[in-house]
């Protein structure tokens, strides 16, 4: 997908070497903690604590075995995290796409204010809105349920999706839809058949970012979940208990939490970059 570098055609071998050195240093900075986390998760606690650091050792999978055993229940938390993030992302994308399109095409009075209001709904400090949200959720019986959690995630994902999809649609000329409507499409058909496919990479990029926000959330999940609906970040925070920090499990949790995203990341990274490059950031 990337063509030959355009800006750097005349760069010499030295420049390229410098660039690689920079990139390698950056990668060490980014990856060393992660590598250390993965290695630590494969050690016994005694091994984990022994300094100077060891990079070669006999790995043990005991921590993982324990976490995924019936009493560890980690598989369950993972499932909760996946379900809550995917559902809230899906809801946000559907509503955000429709709303974003309407916002981009409609002629609203004070349209700019409207779109800023949309994104501003995501800005409220969480602890301050927790009480009203909790009261609402409690009245509806949503505390501790998966529906409640999905809805809580939607509170920050929907404004984001709506706003960013709007910027994508603004970059797609309305003339294309108008042409379609001349050909006999309804307004919705024109949107569905013409505009939406063009915005697809943007949709994917938005979806990935929404997934990331939901996947990483701790503030909402810590209050709105119960044992049955607990997500991975909440489970991670519970490893700091009165009897000490369960470092082995903490490191294993960290490893597991990036795995799905690593796998997904490999597949979707190019859509992410392409998607972002078409709308929001052009």
């Amino acid at each position: 997908m990337m063509e030959q570098t355009r800006a750097g055609r005349k760069r010499g071998a030295l420049g390229t070497a410098v660039l690689y050195v920079i990139v390698v240093i950056a990668l060490i900075w980014a990856l060393l903690p992660i590598v250390w986390m993965v290695l630590s998760s494969l050690k016994t606690q005694a091994g984990m604590f022994s300094m100077p650091p060891k990079f070669l050792f006999k790995p043990t999978f005991d921590t993982y075995r324990q976490m995924f055993s019936a009493s560890g229940g980690f598989g369950h938390y993972l499932w909760n995290s996946v379900v809550a993030s995917v559902l809230s992302t899906a809801i946000s994308l559907v509503l955000g796409t429709l709303g974003g399109f309407a916002l981009a095409r409609g002629h609203f009075k004070r349209g700019k204010d409207l779109s800023f209001w949309v994104i501003s709904t995501r800005m409220a400090p969480i602890p301050a809105v927790m009480l009203p949200l909790y009261l609402m959720f409690s009245k509806l019986g949503l505390i501790g349920t998966m529906t409640g959690l999905v809805f809580a995630y939607t509170t920050f994902n929907l404004p984001f999706a709506l706003w960013i999809m709007m910027t994508f649609f603004k970059d797609i000329p309305p003339a294309l839809e108008e042409a379609g409507m001349v050909d006999g499409c309804s307004k919705f058909q024109a949107f569905w058949k013409i505009t939406l496919p063009m915005a697809a990479p943007g949709l994917v990029a938005t979806g990935i970012l929404c997934l990331m926000f939901a996947w990483n959330d701790y503030s909402f999940a810590s209050v709105f979940t119960s044992t049955a609906t607990q997500t991975v970040p909440v489970a991670a925070s519970l490893l700091v208990s009165q009897e000490g920090v369960q470092w082995g499990q903490a490191m294993a949790t960290g490893t597991i939490i990036i795995l799905p995203m690593l796998i997904a990341g490999i597949f979707v990274r190019k859509y992410l970059v392409r998607g972002l490059s078409m709308g929001a950031v052009k």
Binding site: L135, I143, A228, V240
Partner: peptide, 25 residues
């Protein structure tokens, strides 16, 4: 019986919110 365990500050936070909501969760 479900035993829900959290760190102390989260317990305090959930209990306070639950009392404020007069809920019997």
């Amino acid at each position: 019986v479900t035993i829900e365990q959290s760190d102390l500050s989260t317990v305090a936070q959930k209990v306070a919110l639950d009392f404020a909501a007069k809920s019997d969760k």
